[in-house]
């Protein structure tokens, strides 16, 4: 999967979690929590959706890697290979 495809995977998941938020305007460098209505409970959802949909596991100590969209793409792309 390319970096762009991985980004889309994450956007799709966020769109399902933050149902009342606009996900088309996400800025990749700004922390997701600042742009969207996401708290720690919702990050748990992102991680669980990754596991459920793509069998990709993120250990708890790596959660900070998912803080921004670019962080997500950088961290997750190798896991999708």
């Amino acid at each position: 999967m390319t970096a762009q495809e991985v980004r889309q995977v994450v956007v799709d998941i966020i769109a399902d979690i933050a149902i009342d938020d606009d996900v088309t305007t996400i800025d990749d460098a700004t922390p997701l929590r600042e742009q969207l209505d996401l708290d720690s409970m919702d990050f748990l959802d992102i991680v669980m959706e990754l596991k459920k949909r793509h069998k990709v596991e993120v250990p708890q100590e790596d959660y900070p890697e998912l803080a921004t969209m670019s962080g997500c793409v950088q961290y997750l792309t190798p896991k999708f290979q």
């Binding site: 979690i17 149902i19 009342d20 209505d37 959802d45």
Partner: peptide, 15 residues
């Protein structure tokens, strides 16, 4: 954002 009602709707994925 971050109020009980909107939090719970989001967790249950109810618009």
């Amino acid at each position: 954002r971050k109020r009980p009602l909107t939090k719970l709707l989001k967790q249950l994925r109810i618009p």
